[in-house]
């Protein structure tokens, strides 16, 4: 079954832009990205849209559909209110390049600021041995497809541009949590305390755990409950819990 839908797509660049209406055919089983491609093919060949896999695995087609950060390829038309205009805008946290394409360089900058995995001494690549129980938590975070929808929806940077230098965002705080939970990461041996630096250098304290990152994650990663809150608790161990501090000093607790 086909029907005619009204799509309102933001078109423009950093200098300005506008929401533009399109009447477009929609067929059974289609996702929003299919319809955007039809607009591109039939009405606006110069419409800029970033996409790649159409399977929710590359994280390219992030946008805001009816005001909600989503992957266009994973948003079925049947889940949107029938008969109502579908509004599509680029992610509103990042600078726009053109139409639906934004400059997500902020995220790559933040990724570079996170110190990488530190290999354990005396263990060569290929000799790493880990128990499944020890890597379960980190593996959940490895499902991330880097669509940056969590970064887009996080009000710390979305609503406060001035916080961008200080705040890594949920995706990269999750990366710190992943490394801090990694059974073989030897950062502590090299003098790097990931728990403390999460708070001091990557802005963990800005997070007020309102869970929007979890709500928008297309991979269903429990970012807040499994990464951000555990990381906050680990930072508390280091910075705000004198009992833990005392225990580590007298040798009752290891770091």
């Amino acid at each position: 079954m086909s029907y005619e839908a009204t799509f309102r797509v933001w078109r423009g660049d950093a200098e300005g832009g506008e929401l533009t209406d399109f009447q477009v055919e929609v067929n059974d089983g289609e996702v929003v990205l299919d319809v955007v491609h039809r607009i591109q093919a039939t009405q606006a060949p110069d419409l800029a849209v970033r996409w790649n896999c159409k399977a929710g695995k590359c994280g390219s087609c992030s946008a805001e559909i009816n005001g909600r950060p989503r992957l266009m390829c994973m948003t079925r038309m049947s889940t949107l209110p029938a008969g109502e205009t579908v509004t599509i805008t680029p992610m509103r946290t990042f600078p726009v390049l053109r139409d639906l394409v934004t400059d997500v360089g902020f995220n790559y900058q933040k990724a570079r600021e996170i110190p990488a995995f530190v290999p354990p001494q005396g263990v060569k690549p290929g000799e790493y041995r880990m128990q499944q129980a020890d890597v379960n938590r980190s593996q959940e975070f490895r499902k991330c497809i880097e669509c940056f929808l969590c970064q887009d929806t996080c009000h710390v940077v979305r609503d406060h541009e001035e916080n961008k230098p200080a705040f890594a965002g949920p995706r990269f705080l999750m990366r710190i949590a992943e490394l801090d939970m990694h059974p073989l990461d030897a950062a502590a041996d090299s003098g790097l305390d990931r728990k403390a630096t999460a708070q001091d250098e990557h802005g963990l304290g800005y997070c007020n755990i309102t869970k929007c990152c979890t709500e928008v994650c297309p991979e269903g990663i429990k970012i807040t409950d499994n990464a951000l809150i555990p990381l906050k608790e680990r930072a508390v161990d280091r910075k705000y819990d004198p009992l833990v501090w005392l225990g580590s000093k007298i040798g009752l607790r290891r770091g």
Binding site: G12, N66, G67, T89, P90, D159
Partner: peptide
């Protein structure tokens, strides 16, 4: 202008949000 979703460089959309729900 110059604040939040209306910061310079971001997509120029007047509404503070476009959620319909």
């Amino acid at each position: 202008a110059a604040r939040g979703v209306h910061s310079p460089g971001r997509a120029a959309i007047a509404q503070r949000h476009l959620r319909l729900d």
